[in-house]
């Protein structure tokens, strides 16, 4: 980070380090320093988010196509921007008691079409193709690979059995098939837990490294 070495960065680095420390202080107890930094972060990121959305959405998708378009804008193209804009503006009626219901219309549009486009591709991606790859031709596989595929199959069936017939059926009694499902789930959750620990630690490592960079740059060591 060459920017850290620029002139006048010393004081900025100290401020940033103090802010970061005030965030870390939350690990012991909630305090005013943390609250201040949290609110500062919320304000800055909302401001930044606003600028990005304003630029990418409002300027590039609405303003420029309407007023600075290089090609010839026909009626159809103009309407294709104006109509969704009007629908979008209806969102802001939600603050009025009298016209608040109008905000439901753009929401209905996004919800309905969003739900519609969801169905087909999801079935194909997460059901058809996943089932396809669970059913394999054993003729060219080694014994170990066949064993693994059978385990995968057993895990799928028993896990689904557990959720469909034990959890939903509200049965409390011990069930052999469901127990196998639970056994596999615990192995899988263990793996997820191991990975989660890994991910969380990485985040802290990065922060410690950021401290190191900033402290080193204050003392001109970077």
């Amino acid at each position: 980070m060459s920017i850290l070495r620029e002139k006048g960065m010393g004081i900025i680095n100290i401020i940033v380090i103090l802010l970061m420390l005030s965030v870390l202080s939350f690990v012991f107890k909630d305090n005013h320093f943390f609250k201040f930094t949290e609110r500062l972060l919320v304000g800055v990121s909302a401001g930044y988010g606003f600028l990005i959305i304003f630029n990418a959405g409002f300027i590039k998708k609405i303003w420029i196509p309407l007023f600075y378009s290089t090609g010839t804008n026909n009626f159809f193209q103009v309407m294709n921007i104006i109509l969704p804009c009007l629908l979008g503006l209806l969102f802001f009626t939600s603050f009025s008691k009298k016209y608040g219901f109008l905000a439901k219309y753009p929401l209905a549009f996004l919800l309905g079409t969003g739900a519609g486009v969801e169905i087909g591709p999801r079935i194909e991606t997460s059901i058809m193709r996943q089932i396809n790859s669970s059913v394999v031709d054993f003729s060219n596989l080694s014994l170990f690979e066949i064993f693994n595929y059978i385990i995968i199959l057993i895990a799928i069936v028993t896990t689904m059995y557990y959720f469909l017939f034990i959890v939903r059926g509200n049965k409390k009694r011990e069930n052999f098939i469901a127990n196998i499902g639970i056994f596999f789930m615990m192995i899988g959750f263990g793996a997820s837990f191991g990975y989660t620990i890994m991910g969380r630690l990485s985040l802290l490592i990065e922060v410690v490294d950021m401290f190191r960079e900033r402290i080193f740059s204050i003392f001109g060591l970077l």
Binding site: T125, R129, Q130, N132, S133, I152, G188, A191, S192, Y195, T196, M198, G199, R200, S202, I205
Partner: peptide, 23 residues
């Protein structure tokens, strides 16, 4: 890393060609 184990079924089915998981 937190998401990595979720994507192994898609690796297994060949829908994902490769996967980098976490640090």
């Amino acid at each position: 890393a937190v998401m990595a184990s979720e994507y192994y079924p898609y690796l297994n089915s060949g829908q994902l060609l490769g996967l980098l998981g976490g640090l």
